[in-house]
Every structure is written in structure tokens, then in C-alpha cells.
Design a protein around this nucleic acid. Structure first.
Lengths: 125, 125
DNA sequence: AGCAAATATTGACCATCGTCGATATTGACA
DNA sequence: TGTCAATATCGACGATGGTCAATATTTGCT
């Protein structure tokens, strides 16, 4: 079971494929976690555990198609444009967002199931 | 709705009553979060977003009665006793654990629903 | 009272993180 | 080709966080 989890992680496209980790079915409340399981989940949670990134995620999630342009994300938060870009990169590297460029604009889209996966790992429904 | 949430938080016993925050029903993926909502959720997530604390939580959660003595938590993790004590305090202050002392030993118990609350805020079921 | 065991607190160190200003890159368009 | 707008990257700074050694506190026991 754990081996399956790791082989899935190896072949994944993103740095931290939270969706695949979710397939491990090792919720926080079921059994004692191993060190590497705790490391992986902590890495994903750290990516979300920031007010600016949470607001970015929620704005994108509330947008139609769960997709938003960077230009629409810079003003609502009271932080500079480089900082927004940095947070979006963190969320993308963590496997919560994908980036697609159309013209000069960059659009970030929520990866379906990524948040639900983390949610399921924290507490089984 | 938001006002109810804040009045609940004011009268709560713990510093960060995640259970009450969960009662706000403002999931990450439903609407754009306000700054203070993001601050609160980030604070709770930060408390969990650490490998050592995740392992502590999972050990306690897997124990009978979802309760464990500190003496049983010091050895499985490869960290010193003061560090374990520190992490347990962080989790307790964040509203995930309660502490009860029986004799010389300190027992930490999982607060029912606290993890589920956070989980629900990250992704609505 | 005095000792021993379990746990908490303190103070310090190093690493990581969030933010910013400045600059680089990318792409559209005249 | 040159310019402009949108976004990303870089380097730096202050703040926060995880860990430890040393010490304090609490509690049971003799």
C-alpha cells in the first residue's frame, strides 16, 4: 500500500502530487504516520498555511471555471505583485494550481480534487 | 453569519477554537475569504503543518480513547523531550488537544471534531 | 523534609519564510 | 525594431519557527 503510493509519486508530473498522495488512504486519524508520510503531508499543508495563499486559492476557487488571471489577483490582496507571483508559484509547485499563459496574461486554475485530497488526509469523512 | 462566528470565538475557552471556526461554514472553495477568515484558518493550518506535530497527532488519534501519555510520545519521534513538550503546547493552544495531568504523567487527548472541522474548511464535502 | 521521575519553561542558535524593490523576461503591437 | 504592459526572477531584510541544552516546576514516595 505504501509502496504503491511511492511509485505513484515518482511518476507524477508535479513536484508534490497531492492527488496521488490521497490515493494512499492513510488519514491522520487512522494509523500512526511514518516519518515520510508526515513529511509529505506537512509539505502540502505548509503550502496552504498562509493567509495570502488561502485568499488566492479561495478567489480562484470562487471564480468561474475555477480559473483566474494574475491581474485579478494582484489588487484584492494588499501585497505587491512579486509577492503574489511568489505565492502562486508555491501553490503551483505544491500541486494545487496549474498555470497557462494566454497572450500576456497568466491564468491559474485549481487542480480538481487537490484540496479535497488534503482535506481527506487530515480527517477521514 | 460572520458576526456569529466572531462572537463564538470571543467566548471560547481555547486560544484558537477551531471547532467554533468550523461553525462559520465558510469553506475555502465556496466564496472568497476575508482577511480575518484567512488569518484564522492559516493559524490553525500552521499548527498542523509540521511533521513532528502530525506524527504526534496521529499517534494520539490511533491510541485507545484518542489519548496518550507524554512518556509514550517522546521515544517514537527522534526529537528531544523539550521539543515534544513544545509541539504539544502548540497543538493544545491551537485547539486540537486537551491536557490532563494524572499523577506525574500528562495525558493529551484529541478534541473530537477539531481535525474534521479544519478538514471541512479546506474542502467542502 | 528530601529525593527522584516526569514534564514544562527559558534562552539561544540556525534555518526557513513572507515581503519588498529592482530588474529580467515574455508577448503584443505600432 | 522599439516600446509598453504583464508577469517572473533575484537579492536582501526582518520575522518567525524548530530544535536543543540547561534549568525550573510539579508530583509521588520514603
Amino acid at each position: 500500500m505504501v509502496n504503491i503510493c511511492y511509485s505513484l509519486r515518482m511518476s507524477a508530473r508535479t513536484l508534490l502530487p497531492v492527488v496521488d498522495v490521497g490515493a494512499c488512504r492513510a488519514p491522520l486519524t487512522r494509523d500512526a504516520m511514518t516519518q515520510s508520510q508526515a513529511d509529505d503531508l506537512a509539505r502540502s499543508l505548509k503550502a496552504i498555511a498562509d493567509p495570502a495563499r488561502l485568499r488566492l486559492l479561495s478567489i480562484i476557487a470562487a471564480s468561474e471555471g475555477q480559473e483566474a488571471c494574475v491581474c485579478d489577483l494582484t489588487e484584492p490582496l494588499d501585497i505587491g505583485q512579486p509577492t503574489v507571483s511568489h505565492h502562486l508559484k508555491v501553490l503551483t509547485d505544491a500541486g494545487f494550481l496549474t498555470r497557462s499563459k494566454r497572450g500576456t496574461w497568466a491564468y491559474f486554475t485549481l487542480i480538481p480534487g487537490a484540496l479535497a485530497s488534503i482535506s481527506r488526509l487530515v480527517a477521514s469523512p
